[in-house]
Nucleic acid binder design. Structure first.
Lengths: 133, 133
DNA sequence: CCGTCCCCTACTAAAATTGTAGACTTATAC
DNA sequence: GTATAAGTCTACAATTTTAGTAGGGGACGG
């Protein structure tokens, strides 16, 4: 797993929204300024999060985004997977994003990388936005 | 950390050499065929490994490559770092490859990713080629 | 009906990844 | 001492991924 700026921005935006849940809807530009994210890029990211039901939104004046589910129901694992795919170090040990890779037949190596995969998944699955605000 | 095919091939080649240490020097083509690696690509990889002192070589007939140090002195961490850089999930928590990234100021996130970094580094630093042959 | 804000797609520039090509060098066998 | 079997080295190319930008459209509030 390697975080791209997409997923880092996504996490920052979600954290912002989790911290400002009381305020209701927040505009893209507000988040963009607060977290120093290129606004049009953030727009795409939020749209992706919305389609995946992590956010809800409304248009028009006073529109904006808010969390689509409780902060404790959104895990880091889900967010990272949405933007960066596999949490595993190589796709041949990935559960959700399996693909063939050269080391596939090296059982000993596979075991090591599965251990890492398991640690990372467990860790990120057990941490929600609520744990971080 | 995300393994590229470069580092996967490097690991395969090193394992092959570790398993055939008795045979002395082994040619690129022999390794390439045994491990199904594009030969000219492997050539580059072995050269990099050699420059980093993990391999030694000699030219000419009956030339080839062999491990440059004992198999138990070559850790997976070193090999992966050589080809793929940081073991950490994002460079802002990397010790050897630090760079600024967007989530930098989110202390809570940083803590999580440092935990992952530590697990991965310890794991890969404690496993050598010798452990896998 | 006007401004504000989300929706959506297409596009682009840069970087990384995954190789290929070919000329050069060195050691060994004969 | 020459042919040959290797490694050495650099440059290049194709593809994919990443990190954005651009801009028109649609909905909602006032």
């Amino acid at each position: 797993m390697k975080l791209t700026s997409r997923s880092e921005y996504a996490l920052l935006a979600l954290l912002y929204l989790a911290r400002h849940e009381a305020q209701g809807l927040v505009s893209v530009d507000t988040i963009a300024k607060a977290q120093a994210i290129p606004p049009k890029f953030l727009e795409q990211i939020l749209l992706t999060l919305k389609r995946a039901r992590y956010l809800k939104s409304s248009k028009g004046q006073h529109g904006g985004y808010a969390l689509g589910k409780p902060a404790d129901k959104i895990s880091l694992a889900e967010v990272v997977r949405l933007f960066d795919g596999a949490l595993a170090p190589t796709e041949s040990v990935s559960v959700y994003f399996f693909e063939h890779t050269p080391i596939e037949k090296e059982k000993n190596l596979i075991r090591v990388f599965k251990d890492i995969r398991d640690y990372v998944s467990r860790k990120l699955e057990n941490i929600s936005l609520a744990d971080l605000v």
